[in-house]
């Protein structure tokens, strides 16, 4: 078994938590883009952005993780990730860095995790000063989970 000893993660903050997704899944990270809201869609869908002529759906990670909404005026940033045969954007509070992690410091999510966090968090890397929570992009963007949020509150 030759597993790479280190892995690289693109890290960002959402609601005070420190998350990461494998850097190879990330196409780019960009500043706030103007969005067109999509009525009647799930509340997780924030809107559509124009990414150099390509229309990309933006998902609000705060809503997906059932965290309180961003304070007024705080503009989210986009982490554009590859998913299925296209790209989607994850809205995060702040983009941090690309972090190299040691496989030995990884620990799967504790059984005490509840609800949506249990679904989407694969586990944590114990960094020196904090925990890096690894998101399972497939689960985060699972169509069932997102469309089941349909009609929650469509006010936009």
């Amino acid at each position: 078994m030759t597993i790479a000893a280190t892995k690289q993660f693109c890290t960002f903050f959402v609601g005070g938590h420190y998350f990461g997704v494998p850097v190879l899944d990330v196409q780019e990270a960009i500043r706030y883009q103007e969005m067109t809201s999509v009525p009647l869609s799930s509340s997780v869908v924030s809107g559509l952005i124009n990414l150099r002529g390509q229309i990309v759906v933006a998902f609000d990670l705060r809503r997906r993780l059932e965290l309180p909404p961003r304070s007024d005026g705080a503009k989210p940033m986009n982490v554009v990730v590859r998913h299925l045969d296209g790209v989607v954007s994850l809205l995060v509070d702040e983009i941090d860095d690309v972090v190299e992690t040691d496989e030995v410091t990884f620990e799967p999510a504790p059984a005490t995790l509840k609800g949506v966090a249990r679904e989407v968090i694969l586990g944590a890397y114990k960094l020196k000063n904090r925990l890096l929570l690894v998101l399972d992009i497939e689960k985060v963007l699972s169509i069932e989970a997102i469309t089941s949020g349909d009609g929650d509150d469509n006010a936009s």
């Binding site: 969005m35 067109t36 869609s41 559509l48 124009n50 759906v57 349909d150």
Partner: peptide
């Protein structure tokens, strides 16, 4: 016409999306 992503397929009200003259997206 640009297709909507997989996540918006269920929205039968929209046929797709497009980019308007000012660069913004319209449904």
């Amino acid at each position: 016409v640009k297709p909507l992503g997989h996540h918006l397929k269920s929205a039968s009200v929209f046929a797709g999306s497009t980019i308007m003259g000012d660069g913004k997206v319209a449904l």
